[in-house]
Simulated scan of single mutants.
Amino acid sequence: MSEDRTTTVGRRDFLRKVGFGTAGVGATLATPLVGSAQADSENNDEKRKARYRESDDVKTFYRVNRYPA
């Protein structure tokens, strides 16, 4: 006769094991992301320059989506 030796994991036990596993991974992944803050490398003139350009792609987007000219 064969005996069924299936182990059943309860719902709460499963969630506890998964929760502890992800907490450990999250702590190890967050550690290298912490670093010192750096200031912007742009001076005031570069910050004030115009950056928006109405290229052909932008004009096509406006035309296709029926924005007023």
Rank of each mutant, 00 (worst) to 15 (best):
R16I: 08
G10M: 03
L33R: 01
V34F: 07
L33E: 09
V25M: 10
A37H: 02
L29D: 00
D4C: 15
V34Y: 04
L29V: 01
A37V: 11
E3T: 11
R16T: 07
D13N: 12
R16K: 10
F20T: 05
T8P: 05
L15G: 02
G24P: 00
V18S: 04
T28I: 10
G35W: 01
F20S: 01
P32Q: 04
A27E: 02
T31H: 02
G35M: 10
R5G: 15
A30T: 15
G21S: 13
R16W: 01
V25T: 14
D13R: 06
R11I: 14
T6V: 12
G21A: 11
G21L: 05
G10E: 06
T7N: 05
L33Y: 09
G26N: 02
R5T: 12
Q38E: 08
R11T: 13
A30I: 09
D4L: 10
T31E: 05
L15S: 13
Q38L: 07
F14D: 02
T22A: 15
S36N: 02
T28A: 06
G19N: 05
L15I: 07
P32C: 06
T8E: 05
V9S: 05
R5H: 10
A30D: 04
A30V: 12
T31S: 08
R16Q: 06
G19L: 01
T8A: 05
G24F: 14
D4P: 11
T7G: 03
V34L: 07
D40T: 15
Q38H: 09
R11E: 15
A30Q: 13
F20R: 04
L29I: 03
L33H: 07
D13V: 09
A23Q: 11
L15T: 09
T31Q: 02
T28S: 03
R12N: 11
D40Q: 15
G10Y: 08
L15F: 03
G24M: 07
T6H: 12
T8C: 07
F14K: 05
A39M: 13
R5V: 15
T6R: 14
L15W: 06
A30N: 05
T7C: 03
V9Q: 11
G24I: 14
K17Y: 09
S36L: 11
A37G: 04
R16F: 07
F20E: 12
P32I: 02
V18Y: 08
L29P: 00
V34A: 01
D40H: 14
L33A: 06
T8L: 12
R5M: 12
R5W: 12
Q38R: 13
G10C: 11
R11F: 14
T28D: 00
E3D: 10
G24V: 11
L29K: 06
T28P: 00
F14G: 04
R16V: 09
G35V: 06
T22S: 06
